[in-house]
């Protein structure tokens, strides 16, 4: 089963979505957060050693209510997700 997810990119990964627009992405389910990051890298043609690819590797996936770490399954019911690079609040 394939679903379309809309991604919002934050911090240094905002460079993945031109003009800050949400980014649509096709994703094969079931998928973990790590699988989703692989799909993003493929869709954006990221070179494995590039700064953006390395930042993507260090990023988590978020919904409005929780954070998905690499091993977490992304629920099929979610259509809007956020890409969360390392955080630096405070």
């Amino acid at each position: 089963m394939t679903t379309t997810i809309t991604l919002i990119c934050f911090g240094g990964l905002a460079a993945l979505s031109p003009e800050g627009q949400p980014m649509p992405l096709e994703l094969d389910l079931p998928a973990t957060a790590a699988d989703l990051k692989v799909a993003i890298a493929r869709a954006c043609d990221l070179m494995p050693d590039s700064a953006l690819a390395q930042l993507l590797q260090k990023s988590a996936i978020g919904s409005e209510t929780r954070i998905y770490i690499d091993s977490d399954l992304i629920p099929a019911s979610l259509s809007h997700l956020a890409l969360l690079p390392p955080v630096s609040g405070g």
Binding site: G11, S59, A60, I67, I69, D70, L84, P85, P86, S88
Partner: peptide
């Protein structure tokens, strides 16, 4: 520049 921070992706 974006300030490097704390990774959320590997463990809670």
């Amino acid at each position: 520049g974006w300030v490097p921070g704390n990774c959320l992706c590997q463990e809670r």
